[in-house]
Computed example of a mutant assay.
Amino acid sequence: MKILIIDEMHPSIVEMLEMDGHQVTYSPKITRSEILEQVAAYDGLIIRSKTPMDRELLEKAINLKFIGRAGAGLDQIDLDYLVERRVKLFHAAKGNRDAVAEHAVGGLLALFNNIIKADGEVRKGIWDREGNRGHELMGKTVGIMGYGNMGKSFAKRLSGFGVKVLAYDKYKLEFGNELVQEVMWEKVKVEADILSIHVPLTPETRNFFTLDELESFAKPFWLINTARGEVISFATLNAALDRGILRGAVLDVMENEKFQKFSPEQKTEFEKLAARSNVIFSPHVAGWTFESYEKINKVLVKKIKKAFED
C-alpha cells in the first residue's frame, strides 16, 4: 500500500513499513492544504495530532483504507465517518502506556514530597526542612477513572506502594484483580485520597469535572491528569484549590495547550494556577519518552500487518 506519514515519527517506522512491502512517503512538515491536494493517492495515513482528520479531509482521501494514530487520543478524528467509509483505525495506546504510568507516579511523588518547591529553595540558599515536610503514599486510597491501557498500567505501578486502588470504568466490567478493586464512581468519590484521570476526550468527558462534581467527593484529594486537559478547566481547578476541595494537582495536560491562544479568562486563571506550589505542570509529555517513541511504531506496524495480511 501507499502510506503517507504526516507527523514526526521515530525514523524506524519507514524501514519497518517498507520491509512489509509498503511504499512510504515521510512528510512530517506537510501542511493541511498539501495533505488535501495529495491524500487521494494514498491507501494509508499515519498521524499524531497536528492535523484534524475531519470530514473535509477524509472526503478527499478516496482510496483510504486505514489511519494509524501514533498515540492514544482519537478526539480529532471523525470516527463516525470512518465507520461509514469502512476505513480501519489503529491507535498505539499500548506503545506509551508504560511511559504515562511512570510519569503519573513520578508526578505524584514529586507533589507529595515538595520536590519542585524544595529544589527551587535549596538553589536559592533556603534550607527549610519543616516547610517541605511531605506525605507518604503508603496507606492512601488511589482512585482511577478509566481502566484502559493507561489506567491499568498505572494501577500496576502502584502495586508496591502499599495503597488501596479503586478503579471505575463506565464501559468495562469484571476487570478487578489482586491489583485493583472494580467499583462504582460513587465509591471512588467516597474513599479516594488521590484521583488519577485516564479517560479519552468525548462529549461525555469534556468538562466532566465541574466544581459541583468535585464538591461531591467526601474528602479533599490530590488530582492527577495525564489524559486530556479539557475534562477540567483552569477556573474549576483554581476554585477547587481555593476551597480546599483539591489538595494539589499534577497536570500533564491543560484545557488549552497553546499559550498564545488563551482567552483573557484562561490567561488570568492559568497565571493563578501557575503561582501555586501545590500544582505541578508538564507539557503533555507523559507518554513522550525515548522508549515509547519507538514502541509506538512497533505497535502500529504490527496492527497494520495483522489487519491486511490476507
Results as ranks from 00 to 15, higher is better:
1 M>R: 07
7 D>I: 03
9 M>E: 10
16 M>F: 09
16 M>D: 09
18 E>N: 12
19 M>K: 15
20 D>T: 12
21 G>E: 10
28 P>K: 06
31 T>C: 08
32 R>T: 13
41 A>H: 13
44 G>N: 00
48 R>Y: 08
50 K>P: 01
53 M>Q: 10
54 D>L: 08
57 L>A: 05
58 L>R: 00
59 E>M: 12
63 N>D: 07
66 F>E: 01
70 A>F: 00
75 D>K: 04
80 D>I: 11
82 L>Y: 03
83 V>W: 12
87 V>L: 07
87 V>K: 03
90 F>D: 01
91 H>R: 09
92 A>T: 04
95 G>A: 03
96 N>R: 04
99 A>I: 01
101 A>S: 11
101 A>W: 00
109 L>N: 08
111 L>C: 05
113 N>D: 07
114 N>P: 03
123 R>S: 10
125 G>I: 02
125 G>F: 04
128 D>R: 06
133 R>T: 15
134 G>H: 04
134 G>M: 03
138 M>F: 15
138 M>C: 15
142 V>Y: 01
143 G>Y: 02
144 I>A: 02
145 M>C: 12
152 K>P: 00
152 K>V: 07
153 S>N: 08
155 A>C: 09
156 K>P: 01
157 R>M: 12
162 G>F: 05
163 V>M: 04
165 V>M: 02
167 A>C: 06
167 A>R: 00
169 D>K: 07
169 D>I: 05
169 D>F: 06
171 Y>L: 11
171 Y>H: 15
172 K>Y: 13
173 L>C: 12
180 V>M: 06
188 V>K: 00
190 V>L: 13
190 V>C: 13
190 V>P: 03
191 E>F: 08
193 D>S: 10
193 D>P: 02
200 P>Q: 07
204 E>Y: 11
204 E>T: 13
208 F>N: 05
209 F>S: 01
210 T>Q: 02
212 D>T: 14
212 D>M: 12
213 E>Q: 13
224 I>V: 13
230 E>T: 11
231 V>R: 03
238 N>F: 03
245 I>N: 02
252 D>S: 06
254 M>I: 10
259 F>D: 15
260 Q>V: 13
260 Q>K: 14
261 K>E: 15
272 K>G: 11
279 V>E: 00
282 S>A: 14
283 P>G: 06
288 W>E: 15
294 E>G: 09
295 K>D: 15
295 K>Y: 13
297 N>E: 05
297 N>S: 08
301 V>N: 02
305 K>G: 12
